[in-house]
Design a binder for these strands. Structure first.
Lengths: 236, 236
DNA sequence: ACCTGAACACCGTTCAAGT
DNA sequence: ACCTGAACACCGTTCAAGT
């Protein structure tokens, strides 16, 4: 009663100190409500009862904020269930990812953009991929087939995995943890990345041919549609 | 030689009068070079040697500019080839769409965003869908199966067709052409929309169950992966 | 009637001035 | 040493003042 609405509450502000997680949560909530366009550093700060500059202690800039938001929502995807066959495990997980995207309608476009202009996957994305690869491997898929499958699933749901294994000179490796540490934390990803890198032999930049992977997924889809059409025709 | 670079050239400016198409072309070129973030009304105007306000004679605002840009690049997708079977026709067309998206890396995220917050398809998008439906129909697909196929292909490549046929109260119908005119111009879309609308009977808002369509496409994909795995296993 | 410059309400981020 | 307000260089768009 004694408070004006919209006025920051100094008591609340100092009780819960600002943290990276609190900044990211406020940003996600803001984007959920008004879309990515409604998101601004100034509005996040206002919602937290804080001066805009205070945010920069916890996120370097807006790009890093967006990366953190992606990591937050990808972390909401359920981990693979234990003890089920590969097919229902993948199915459940993809449906969980879809529910996440329905909760956060701004996410696909932001993921799409960020992945394209800086293909450095965040920890939660790495964990997602690691788990998915593990499920396929446990289901008896060869490394080669898992590679195709990851491209198929990636384009099925998000921009994930599109450019993940580009061991190209410039980008990724620089800021990433050293290979040994990565191999320990993400063994399935490391194994797959190694196989893909060696696969194409001496071709420069070799490894993953995006055009081939795209056509592979497209043909798999066309196969499925053709089978459905033929089944419907013979059923008449 | 007598010109300072970056200085607008009054002769050039008046020789070719501004037009909606020239504005859109400049916007697309700017986005191709620097991404969607580098796109601003002010920079487009500068590139055209024109004062920013002059653009508003040809596009109502930035949202309408983005819609126009989408229409422009979707219009670059090759039309269906004549006389080939449905499968190679669809294949060629999707590969053409992919080449377009590689030329315009900003397009997927922009399409994703615009389709989500205003699902009013532009003419070129309508023409793309119309052609694709026609190919499936000519290939012997039932209306029901074409509906599924469009969802499968849509999520395969872009956000297209995701929410296209929502005949929901609020949005679309208002600014669209009257039904008869649309039926004349896009007969395949009209037929499919009609079938989908009546399909689910008396269910409110009925017609297209997005969750069902998503799972349909997912299961089609999982079928394909399972078949590949089994083929690889028996080949050993 | 048309066109356009200045102005408004924003934005992300820098930086110097305060404590 | 830390924090932060003012300031800078942008942005989309309105609107009144010019022709």
């Amino acid at each position: 009663m004694g408070e004006l609405p919209g006025q920051p509450d100094p008591a609340r502000r100092s009780r819960t100190p600002l943290s990276r997680q609190r900044v990211l949560s406020a940003a996600v909530a803001l984007a959920d409500e008004g879309g990515a366009d409604a998101l601004s550093m100034r509005k996040i700060a206002q919602r937290l009862g804080v001066v805009p500059m205070a945010l920069y202690k916890h996120v370097a800039n807006k790009d890093e904020l967006l990366d953190g938001m992606i990591d937050t929502v990808v972390g909401e995807i359920d981990p693979p269930v234990e003890g089920a066959d590969w097919r229902s495990t993948v199915r459940l997980r993809v449906l969980s990812a879809r529910r996440m995207l329905l909760r956060h309608p701004w996410a696909p476009a932001v993921i799409e953009t960020r992945m394209k202009e800086r293909p450095a996957p965040t920890p939660a994305v790495m964990a997602y991929l690691e788990g998915m690869i593990g499920v396929f491997r446990a289901g008896g898929f060869s490394l080669d087939l898992v590679h195709h499958a990851m491209h198929v699933m990636g384009s099925r749901l998000m921009g994930f995995s599109q450019e993940l294994f580009t061991d190209s000179p410039s980008s990724a490796a620089a800021s990433s943890p050293p290979p040994e540490e990565m191999a320990a934390r993400y063994p399935n990803i490391a194994e797959l990345a190694g196989a893909v890198a060696h696969e194409a032999g001496s071709v420069v930049g070799g490894g993953c041919d995006d055009q081939f992977e795209f056509e592979f997924a497209l043909d798999l889809t066309l196969d499925g549609l053709e089978r459905l059409r033929n089944a419907a025709a013979t059923a008449d």
